[in-house]
Design a protein around this nucleic acid. Structure first.
Length: 477
RNA sequence: CGGGGAGUAGCGCAGCUCGGUAGCGCACCUGACUGGGGGUCAGGUGGUCGCGGGUUCAAAUCCCGCCUCCCCGACCA
């Protein structure tokens, strides 16, 4: 229960220790396949609820499409196939005799192909558009190297797939979802992100362009926290998804897809955690407030219990997710336990507090103890939770600011990443060869996103030609 | 997928070189004392030694195959 590796000693071990000891997830015994435990799943559920509300509000509908994709469907979009081929798992046998299937079935690595093949049944007229679909599911990608939440062979996510009558509308859709992803990251997970377009090299296979939100973890590595793709008519062409426009002409749809995954649980761990364990943003915290009763005998226990019951009801009515820890452990054990789990607020309540009509409030960030009267406690805790959410975000923002740099030459970039990590803004000419050189000469630094706000100025950090873009460089997960 | 290391109780490990009754710490269970930052004492439970095959009178230990995990590289939400 106790010792987790210090973050400063070995970040990767620290991460694994926290994920396992805070009971978020485990490996399963099947290579690369994880079991997500209730405490980790509850965070994912909070994210799913938030995002599901957002997309429902803007007219999206949840569907369920098949897990298994016929090989012939998968093969139709050439770039897409090429991109995913190395990580597809195939079902080739089935039944009691393990008979060979006539056509191998892919376990979906993503569902563009099967949705493309199926959705056209439901799209005939421009009146059927836009078709805004989403599904919550898991997908399988045959990764060679895995890490809990960040890269597992199966992961859980949502994949949105939308079909539009015009490219403009589809591009707006991709942008709209990117905004939702930013909101999930910043407003819910308290992780500030850079957002923008991916370079062609980093674009989703088959897409015209890919939009991304990228967060910075506490080891200085960037994490892709959500992507939104504009397909133009690429998939519509491959799957013949067409409609009759107002002029009664046949036209191909424009489409998008977008996803966020259980990887975001890993982002919570790595963006906020410390040597004591997790820090969970209140908005997604399975337990927002934990109450630790302190007593020595039955009489004091009953006294404390009655006291907690009195205002516990108020917390429930106020929608505060709280739990009273009545386990037969010592208070110190309980403090450490809930700190490891990253619960934002803790209330220590003993006989002294009962007499004084107060509780002792401790927050996971400052760990300072403050006496709080029980009168109006629900409102007070709601305010404290909101403040905690803000503080966590501001702390992460400061961390991002302190670890974001502006450099102009490849030599500077190489020198920089030898010493430290973080984001580095630099001018780039738009040439894939220069991009590749950055990666090889820095030992893995990549262009995470292209700045969508600022215009480029200066010369490409690699070749010295006039820059087309300002790009964010980082080592990434 | 290439190179290296490892799998023995829930967790961390010893035992293996040199084959012969499976051990230690923590956790867990019971009881007592305790209880406002990770307690003390006493007594207990728990293991097909990763899986399969081979050698042997006898295998955790030796041999072969496979699976899984960790570290390092190439590919990735």
């Amino acid at each position: 229960m106790k010792d987790i590796t210090k973050m400063s000693d070995d970040f990767d071990r620290w991460y694994t220790d926290v994920v396992r000891k805070a009971e978020l997830a485990d490996w399963s015994g099947v290579r690369g396949m994880m079991v997500v435990r209730p405490y980790g799943w509850a965070m994912w559920e909070a994210i799913t609820r938030a995002f599901d509300d957002m997309i429902k509000e803007s007219g999206h509908e949840n569907w369920a499409f098949p897990l298994l994709i016929p090989r012939s469907y998968l093969m139709k979009e050439a770039e897409h196939v090429e991109g995913f081929a190395p990580e597809v798992a195939w079902v080739t046998r089935a039944g009691g005799d393990m008979e060979e299937l006539e056509e191998p079935l892919a376990v979906r690595p993503t569902s563009e192909t099967i949705i493309g093949a199926l959705i056209k049944r439901y799209i005939q007229s421009h009146r059927d558009l836009p078709k805004l679909t989403n599904q919550w599911n898991s997908v399988v990608r045959w990764e060679m190297r895995s890490r809990l939440f960040l890269r597992s062979r199966e992961f859980w996510w949502q994949e949105g797939h939308t079909f539009h009558a015009s490219g403009q509308e589809a591009m707006e859709e991709a942008q709209l979802i990117l905004g939702y992803y930013r909101s999930i990251a910043e407003d819910w997970l308290a992780v500030p992100v850079l957002s923008g377009k991916k370079t062609p090299a980093e674009t989703f296979p088959g897409a015209v362009y890919t939009l991304t939100v990228e967060g910075l973890m506490r080891d200085g590595l960037a994490l892709q926290m959500g992507t939104s793709h504009y397909f133009g008519q690429n998939f519509a062409r491959a799957y013949d998804i067409s409609f009759s426009n107002k002029a009664n002409e046949r036209e191909l749809c424009y489409s998008t897809s977008w996803g966020i995954s259980t990887r975001l649980v890993g982002a919570i761990v790595m963006a906020h955690g410390d040597d004591s364990g997790l820090l969970v943003p209140p908005k997604v915290a399975p337990v927002q407030v934990v109450v630790v009763p302190i007593f020595r005998d039955d009489a004091s226990r009953i006294k404390v219990e009655g006291f907690i019951d009195g205002w516990g009801r108020e917390l429930k009515a106020a929608g505060i997710r709280h739990r009273v820890d009545w386990r037969d452990e010592r208070p110190g054990d309980k403090y450490a336990h809930w700190e490891l789990k990253g619960v934002p607020l803790r209330l220590n309540v003993g006989a002294r507090d009962v007499d004084a009509g107060q509780v002792e409030l401790v927050d996971r960030l400052s760990r300072e103890r403050r006496a709080v009267p029980v009168a109006g406690i629900a409102a007070r805790l709601q305010a404290e939770l909101a403040a905690f959410q803000t503080k966590l975000f501001e702390r992460a923002q400061k961390y991002q600011r302190d670890n974001t740099f502006e450099l102009s030459t490849l030599d500077e970039v190489i020198a920089h990443f030898r010493e430290r990590s973080g984001f580095v803004w630099a001018p780039w000419c738009d040439d894939a060869e220069c991009e590749a050189r950055i990666k090889t000469e820095t030992g893995g630094v990549t262009i995470r996103t292209i700045d969508s706000d600022e215009k480029a100025s200066g010369k490409c950090l690699v070749c010295g030609k006039p820059a087309e873009h300002r790009v964010a460089l980082a080592k990434a997960y």
